[in-house]
């Protein structure tokens, strides 16, 4: 698979590989992400209007009729596109690409035009329609690494930027480069089936580099030319029995 901007020599270019053959739809990543990133629960009324805020969600598709039914799971999160459609339309640079291949969202800069959300084909950007409601008790759990977003701004999967930074800090303290597997976003760390792999695609020894060049690798909506940093490994097989 050709990697966009591969010639751009940065030490790090983060990428994620999701093996659809492994995903069992259990939702551990959803809760892992939510507890790690202070993502609010929006409540029944907002869920009814389609405002759930799972930075990563398990999309479920059904194919076929009874009895030949097939149900598929597709974990979906910000694809950290190299040519991200959301970035160019933001009038205030609240979302842009950093030199490590991350599509970053700067909460303090965002004014909430929601244009980025309109230009995201994956529908993975989330807007804070209200101030987040964490009750007194729940606030004890909030992760101090990550800010709690106020009303009126967009948010989305950050590839657990706080973990990336901590991983790099640790490596720097120990005077070494970041090793493959040092940094894991919450979803990848928790995924019980090991469907999610995260790593530095510029490191040619890394696991993601190897997986991305496998036969099953593809990206969502590749024809749109967004060059996502999230790669999927095609699931299923012919003649299963």
């Amino acid at each position: 698979m050709k990697i966009f901007n591969a010639d751009k020599q940065n030490d790090y270019k983060w990428a994620m590989v999701i093996d659809l053959d492994r995903c069992d739809g259990c939702g551990a990543c959803v809760i892992g992400c939510q507890t790690e990133n202070n993502v609010p629960t929006v409540g029944q009324d907002d869920v009814a209007t389609g405002r759930s805020m799972h930075w990563i969600r398990i999309e479920r598709y059904i194919e076929g009729e009874y009895p030949n039914v097939k149900v598929r799971f597709l974990p979906m999160m910000c694809q950290h596109c190299e040519a991200a459609p959301c970035e160019s339309v933001c009038p205030v640079y609240a979302t842009y690409h950093n030199d490590e291949g991350l599509n970053v969202q700067v909460y303090n800069r965002c004014i909430g035009t929601r244009f980025c959300g309109n230009n995201c084909p994956y529908s993975v950007r989330f807007f804070n329609w209200w101030d987040p409601s964490f009750d007194e008790a729940t606030r004890n759990q909030l992760n101090p690494d990550v800010s709690v977003r106020e009303r009126g701004i967009m948010e989305k999967c950050s590839f657990c930027m706080q973990r990336i930074r901590r991983g790099k800090d640790h490596a720097k303290d120990e005077g070494r480069p970041v090793k493959d597997g040092d940094i894991q976003p919450a979803c990848a760390q928790t995924c019980p089936t090991g469907a999610i792999t995260f790593g530095n695609i510029n490191d040619h020894e890394s696991k993601v580099h190897e997986m991305v060049h496998g036969k099953r690798a593809y990206r969502l909506f590749e024809e749109k030319g967004t060059h996502p940093s999230v790669y999927y490994l095609k699931g299923g097989a012919e003649n299963v029995f």
């Binding site: 700067v106 990550v146 800010s147």
Partner: peptide, 8 residues
């Protein structure tokens, strides 16, 4: 990019 990120 990591405005608001404060790894503890």
């Amino acid at each position: 990019a990591d405005d608001g990120v404060n790894p503890v």
